[in-house]
Design a protein around this nucleic acid. Structure first.
Lengths: 145, 145
DNA sequence: TCTTGACTTAGAATCATTCTAATATTAGAT
DNA sequence: ATCTAATATTAGAATGATTCTAAGTCAAGA
């Protein structure tokens, strides 16, 4: 879904499209790095010097509840958000704390609505490890040590 | 792996098996409800009135690093832990905040060591939704309303 | 234009986690 | 058994993320 559609989606669902909400969604549209709330807030603060953290949190919660963005709980103690809502896996590098999108075909849960009598509403397939960049660094270090 | 094996495992890996560490691991062995740190601490506090939260956190971190327990980041803002380390999916009910174990056969990541050049060290397959108990409650409510 | 409800704001409050510095315990050497 | 150095535990302070609060602002419809 493109940015305009999502912005329009907000209105349709009975929520006002304020300048702050526009800014948050636009930020996520332009930054596909799975930013933390702090990163989003800090960046928006430069454009809108009076924007409040509460507004950022409220907006992210609203967008999430409208199904327009995705919440990521891959890293302990802090939230990240993703503009992309199509189901996909996330890879978290515990060395550099980056989050990567990865495509994994053939997930047996992809089409399931229920499991063990529980209603499935969202999948959060997370993978933890060391990313290619960090592996490369370790290798470079290894050669000279 | 049974409790004795895990307790012995600690020693083998060069860590002292203190009474506190024993208590934490035993608590997880006996409580397979994926308890939060607060729940673990609160319960142990009744037996060991002087146990410190720092010790609980340190011990959980140690056990996790020794590969004896599993950390769960399914719920925003707080950690949970699982005695069971065999790969399995977790289901989080956002109505009652319970975490369930679920078995999902045929995960295409099960045997993979690498993905997109990243080294896979741990899988955290999380599912969010409404659990059977909460679905039942909603239904009961619906009948009478 | 007025009113009402929705939205934003700054900062306080809360909650989870980590840090700190002092004390206690352990394992290994004597 | 005693000593010692390293390791572990403790209480409470500090930090960091998130939520709450109360006051002020804005927006859409009468």
């Amino acid at each position: 879904m493109n940015l305009k559609e999502k912005l329009a989606g907000l209105n349709k669902k009975g929520s006002t499209l304020t300048i702050q909400r526009h800014a948050v969604l636009e930020y996520l549209y332009e930054n596909r790095t799975h930013p933390t709330v702090e990163e989003i807030y800090h960046s928006l603060k430069e454009k809108f010097s009076t924007i409040s953290k509460a507004t950022v949190y409220n907006t992210l919660e609203l967008l999430k509840n409208h199904g327009l963005i995705q919440e990521i709980t891959i890293e302990k103690g802090k939230l990240r958000f993703d503009y992309e809502i199509k189901p996909h896996h996330h890879f978290f590098c515990h060395k550099c704390n980056r989050v990567y999108d990865v495509d994994v075909a053939g997930c047996p849960l992809a089409e399931k609505k229920m499991i063990d009598g529980h209603k499935i509403e969202e999948l959060r397939p997370y993978i933890i490890g060391t990313c290619s960049k960090c592996l490369q660094k370790e290798e470079d270090g290894g050669i000279h040590s």
